[in-house]
Design a protein around this nucleic acid. Sequence first.
RNA 1: GCCGAUGUAGCUCAGUUGGUCAGAGCAGCUGAUUUGUAAUCAGCAGGCCGGGGGUUCGAAUCCCUCCAUCGGCUCCA
Length: 645
Amino acid sequence: MIKITFPDGNVREFAKGVTGLEIAKNISDRLAKEVLSITVNGEVWDLTRSINTNASIKLHKWDEEEAKHAYWHSSAHLMAEAVEILYPGVKLGIGPSIENGFYYDIDFGDYSVSDADLPKIESKMMEIVKAKEEITRKEVSKAEALATYTKKGDPYKVELISDLEDGTITFYSQGNFTDLCRGPHLPDTSYIKSFKLLSIAGAYWRGNEKNKQLTRIYGISFPKKTLLDEYLVMLEEAKKRDHRKVGKELELFTFSQKVGQGLPLWLPKGAQLRERLENFLKRVQKKYGYEQVITPHIGQKELYVTSGHYAKYGKDSFQPIHTPAEGEEFLLKPMNCPHHCEIYKHKPRSYKDLPVRMAEFGTVYRYEQSGELHGLTRVRGFTQDDAHIFCRPDQLKEEFVKVIDIVLYIFKTLDFKEFTAQISLRDPNDKDKYIGSDENWEKAEQAIIEAVQEKGLQTTTELGEAAFYGPKLDFMVKDAIGRKWQLGTIQVDYNLPERFDLEYIGADDKRHRPIMIHRAPFGSMERFVAVLIEHSGGRFPLWLAPDQAVVLPISEKFNDYAKKVADLLNNYDIRTLIDDRNEKIGKKIRDNELKRIPYLLIVGEKEATSDMVSVRMQGEGDKGQMKPEEFANYINAEVKKQIEA
RNA sequence: GCCGAUGUAGCUCAGUUGGUCAGAGCAGCUGAUUUGUAAUCAGCAGGCCGGGGGUUCGAAUCCCUCCAUCGGCUCCA
């Protein structure tokens, strides 16, 4: 007998070799039906794997990650089995579970596969589900594993196995399908009730573009059809918030093939929105002691040779601009920092002058790969809410912390609750990718870690994600369909001050090197607005909305009164339009609701005679009547509340 | 850049196997209506069917190529 300890501390005895499924059944049949995986002494196992020693366990149902991952992992195998049957001779890469669903990377050889094949694969998967194939685990030696896949002729699995330690290798089988896999998996294929293959895409083997590109099929599965339906509806809903769609509907921005791909054109409403965000940040930064500067869009090539950007990105950038003068070359600026370094240098600096905080909404141009461009989130010309802080070593942490404060304040004001903070450090195994001394890197990384600890900020740490000149703290937010985008960024840089030979005179009357902090709380105006659109679905907070109110006369007879109301409100600095089209009120309401204007003010006979407006709030309907002045005061109070939040 | 898909009026989309297939709704313009909380009615105008080649008696439709967009991969100073 062995002792099994449950999460609540209860201990019960079972026969040696008992499985998770048997334990669940012992508790209740219902639990046995719902349980999907089990944690045994901290490791997630298959429900059918025998437990041979005393153990602490926890059974996992669908609502837990451990269950979902087993479920989706088995779904990936299910798909792979179907693919092997339908396309004999294909070679399998990897097929993991992911945050939402699963994928499998497959080398289809000579088959040409497209979305049109997905339904066929789905039907075959359904057959396998109905066949209720048992999923079994087998431990194999490395030699045995290698032999199996060498014989099968699957170079990808052979490569994977070569990197594994002997004694840790397992195969999972179902029907005639066997896969190298760590597991865990579901007991049999019939567990996978409802699934859909979502998309097909190329993916380089092991994520390296020098390797062969395999075909990746993404899918999702659920234990109930209703869950799948809900998920698909949710995806559809999310697509409605896509900033590219909303941006077009609300006339915020556009692109022109003639101007060039990845070069956004801000339409009047979008420009207003962006300007408001910029002014907001300028006000905040002023409080924090920043000074605005302005620099040109180009700079001599030599500037970027000095900064190191040319060596790193020169070949893959917009190429230099030549002038009639022999040998003269300018680059579109990909960064503002070199220009700012030159501003720093324009006069001698004393330790008493530091920190110098230089801010600029600087437009930069980067030649992003064409396949990378994506609405406003990834573009070739964009404006950073950039600033560079030049400080003494003893000021570094405090300055860093203050920048975190700005970022958090902005996120709070804009109601971004779900963001993640990521510390990006360099990859210690690949130091050639970076410039600067080990000592400086260590100091910089330490400064970030300490600042984050001081703020008690929840962070993740990624090795190898640092910029080539320094480590950074990034703030990431998800878009409507769950893709992560980096917004705010704070970077410590010991490198540029050295390259530009920046100095200050210390209290000791000696020359010292300042440290630079690069920071952009929004990241770029383009990307920030994109994410803001997706979070709000275009229903911007009152203080940001391009138009805050629209007056809707019931008929043309009341256009004069409507005009009077609109003028009054505009005098109160409330951005007010009139919809005096010759249309019925229902139509005007509908159209202006679709434009996401926060307040609709309806005026007709009743209002005109009593000097009132009927207030209708976006999405919430009729709010009753009030005096125009009363409405104006209410709106202004709301706006004030929002910005001071 | 790579893999796959898509590209028809400002927008959203129809156009069966190549042969009145250049269409609809919305938006726009004109007129009628003068309207009470999410679409009033009628008329008009609007497209080199992404660009360029080709196959064919004939191409929005088939083929090639380029461009752009979308989903991923890679990249992201």
